[in-house]
Design a protein around this nucleic acid. Structure first.
Lengths: 196, 196
DNA sequence: GTCTATATCATGATAGAC
DNA sequence: GTCTATCATGATATAGAC
């Protein structure tokens, strides 16, 4: 028990590796990125990477779980700051749009990467905690009579599906304008579709 | 000009290769599939594959372009059979849901694969002809006053975003029920969001 | 803990017989 | 046109010095 307080992310090298990996994995894709590539970008040696991580897949997994956790953190804060399903879900959409602009790579890796191909043991994104939380927001809104009664998965998909589609379009470079500028329009459509 | 009528897909072997590749690429992913894997699954030799295709990427490209073309064909038929944007777009959603059930692999490879990683020269899916056609349907509906005035990309994303999200959930095995059973509910939400 | 250098292995692609 | 057998490349992962 009296060990160093260094949890899993021990020190600065770990951070550099993860940051470089995120950038390269999103730019070129996981399979087009070699461990020496990551080493070079992170300014560390190959051996150092294999000291901190079991293998390349382990780097991707750490990255993925970390991003999921950060997203879940953001959702928890939103839940604390807003009472109604309407306000919570709108805040979620705003947060997703802002994150896409401020941390493009993170969003790309979380929403757009095919994790199934390189993290076969992980569950699909839509089964992850953050997506569950979003469904919970919708479920509660339905119980409170804010949202019309229907299959929760359908309602959540309709509410956020348009936004997610725009995010991927933005990540593909198809949308020139920053997403937050579209928030009002997208939200209006999405909410109108499922509001009671 | 007096050559054999065999266009690009020449004969049965070509078909077997493409079919096997589609199945393996969606099951294991492009990078987790080797050319000998495809050869074994297609019951042909490795040399035969390299006779018909330049390399592995060329197989994926043929597959992708063929699926896009088939999708575009379906959209053209829908345009011919329905006049209003409402009817056309509803028919598109129904077609997407049915195709997901009847040809899961095709849908997976078209909508869910990260083409950018292995077909860097191709444009992103949302810039492809079928997606353009879907936007055209929406655009025309807006001009006719069926759909409220707004950014066309936003409207199209909102209209089909929920359905696409459900399709990926279904492909991930998260949804137990066949998609067509949800069509009425999804369509109602989607159309309500953007109808004038 | 971090580095360099390297062993091992599997893949994509080819050669040449039939 | 199709096959079998093989090669060359380059990746992952490790060994061992510092």
């Amino acid at each position: 028990m009296a060990r160093t307080p260094a949890k899993v992310p021990s020190g600065e090298v770990y951070e550099r590796i993860v940051d470089a990996a995120l950038r390269l994995f999103t730019e070129r894709g996981y399979f087009n990125t070699t461990v020496p590539d990551v080493a070079r970008a992170a300014q560390v040696s190959v051996g150092s990477i294999y000291h901190h991580f079991k293998d390349k897949e382990d780097v991707a997994r750490a990255l993925y779980l970390d991003l999921i956790a950060r997203m879940q953190q953001a959702l928890t804060e939103i839940a604390g700051g807003h009472a109604s399903a309407h306000d919570r879900c709108r805040a979620v959409m705003a947060m997703l749009f802002e994150l896409t602009e401020s941390d493009r790579d993170a969003m790309d890796f979380m929403l757009y990467a095919k994790h199934r191909d390189f993290l076969p043991s992980e569950r699909p994104v839509c089964s992850s905690k953050p997506f569950e939380t979003m469904r919970k927001f919708v479920q509660e809104g339905m119980a409170r009579g804010e949202i019309r009664g229907m299959d929760v998965m359908v309602a959540t998909s309709c509410l956020f599906g348009g936004a997610i589609r725009l995010i991927t379009a933005r990540l593909d470079g198809v949308l020139a304008e920053p997403l937050p500028a579209k928030l009002d329009e997208v939200w209006a459509c999405a909410w109108r579709g499922i509001a009671a």
